[in-house]
Structures are given as C-alpha cells and as structure tokens.
Amino acid sequence: MTEKSTVRTREMGVELKSQREAKQMSLREVARRAHWSASKVSGWENGRRISPIDAAIYLAHCGTEAAERARLLQLTRPPSELYWVRPYFDKLVDPMKSLIIQENLATTVISNSPTALPGMLQTEDYLRGIHELAGRYTTDRLKLLIQARIDRQRLLERRNPPHCIYFVYEHTLRSVLRDPALMHEQVQYLVLATNLPHCTIRVVPASAPPYHLVGSRFTILEFAEHPPVVYEETFAAGLFVDDPVAVEAFYVLRTRLDQAALPEQESREFLVRLAEEFDLMAN
C-alpha cells in the first residue's frame, strides 16, 4: 500500500525541490550523488515521507545553509495525527509559507472569515490596519508580512488557479477599520475580485443565524490526489487539521454557511451597494 502524504510531507517535498532547483541541480544528479534511485528522490519531492537522515543528506548535497537546514529538518519530525501547529511568532518560520504551499497544491480553497476579511482578499491598507490594531508585530516584521500576503495573492493571478470560495460576513464588512475611505477601497477590491471566473464571494447577511459565534477563521483545502485538510487560524498560530473526523466537522459548518449565505450574484450586488455607502461616508 502506498503511504499517504500529509500536509507536512507535502511541504517538505516542495522545500526539497526548491533547494535542489536553487542549485540548478537535476533530480537525477541528486540521486546519483547520494546513491539513491531517481524514483526515491521523486517520491520525496512529491510528498512521500523522508527520514531525518536522508533529508540531511539531500540538503547537504544541495549546499543548504545550516540555519535553513535546521528549519527544514523539523519537517521530518513525526506529526500529530490530528493537527500541526505553525506559530506566528517563531522568527524562523514564515507564518504564511506553509499555507501558501498548500494553497498552490490545492484544486479548491474554501475560506470562512467571520472576524476579518479573508487574507487572500485584503488590501495592503486593510492588512496593515488589522495588524496595527492587534499590535502583534514590529514595523520591520509587518513589512515582511505584507509582502508575504502580496505574494500569496498572486495565486489568484496564475494560470489554472484553484477554485476559491470565500464566505464573508455582513457585520465584518460593516466594521469600519480606520476610516470609511479605507473600507471603500477594500470593498471595491472585493467587487473586482468577483469578476474573476475562479473566485466566488458569498456574503453571510446579518439576518442569517449567528454562525460567527461558532465558527473560527478556517480554510478547507481540497486536492486532486490527497484527502482534504483544514487550516484554522488563531491569534497566535495556524493549525493544520488532517484528521478525517475533525475535517468533516468543518464541512458540516460549510454546508450550513452555503445555505445561509446570499447567492453569488446577490452577494456581488450587496458589495456594490456597500462600496457606494462607504464612498458617500468618506466624502
């Protein structure tokens, strides 16, 4: 039986390939140097589990620097069966990198954002305002996070992007961050995003049941060849949920949101009206 990949092993595979390509080495060259078969190396790069010793040998042949090698070797540690925590405050970890890798591998991305707008759809000023409000990062760290968010948004512009479905809440949309001008720009950005054929935005109206009381910020990631996983966001960390029973609980909430949210066209019309409201408030 073929060993199934996990969020952690798929991320490690992407990282291994990135290290190899940075040195302009072919897959067969790494295999030849380490006396491995090309199929074994290919399996690792495609998400098959790699041992710490083999990973260290692979990275040594790629000339990976010590600090980066230490970070990557942590990915070979045995994961929890239920979840994998990615701390936001670890200076050695890009808090968004793990999510970006999984989003780029996914065929469908389903996002529920009851407390703030989806990161993929935030303008730079909205993102900056959120983090300044929370006071979580230094100015330099915030600049890095903004750039990471911009890089993440390129997913929507690439060829053959995943189908992205975003549930946004009326009470969140009407929460004025900093001033109406910022919110007008942000909501207008959402309106423009609805024109993308692979991007669906559904507004959960204030008249719907208060699902924001029971649902956290989470993203369901579906893949062509792997079981779905969930990325759940907290104030201090992101959690990848692999356990099928736990993942199913998120699908139950997704079904209820699908029933409660406005249809796609009505959601777009709502956003257009709201953008006009903020424009009037700003002027």
Rank of each mutant, 00 (worst) to 15 (best):
L239K: 05
S26N: 09
T115G: 09
F250M: 05
S207C: 13
L73M: 08
A208H: 04
K40G: 07
M12S: 05
V41A: 13
I50C: 06
Q259A: 12
T2A: 12
E11Q: 02
T107G: 13
H131G: 01
E170V: 13
L156M: 14
A237E: 13
A60Y: 01
I165K: 03
L274H: 01
S80V: 15
E185H: 07
L239C: 10
R158D: 11
M281A: 13
L182T: 01
F270D: 10
R159F: 09
S51T: 14
V93G: 04
M120N: 01
A70P: 02
S42C: 07
Q153E: 12
T2V: 15
M183G: 06
R217N: 14
L257G: 05
N160H: 12
I146V: 08
G13I: 15
R8M: 11
E233I: 00
T172H: 01
L117T: 13
L99I: 07
A67W: 03
E276D: 08
A148V: 08
L92M: 08
A237H: 09
R273H: 10
L271V: 13
T6G: 04
M281G: 01
R86M: 13
I165N: 05
A148P: 02
C164G: 04
S18F: 08
V176C: 14
L274G: 04
H226L: 11
P95Y: 02
H131V: 07
V93E: 12
H198F: 10
F223P: 08
R28C: 06
T139S: 06
I100Y: 06
Y211K: 01
D151I: 08
T194Q: 04
T234V: 13
G215C: 14
D125K: 00
Y231P: 04
P162C: 14
Y137P: 02
D94S: 12
S37R: 02
V252S: 08
G119N: 03
R158A: 11
S26P: 02
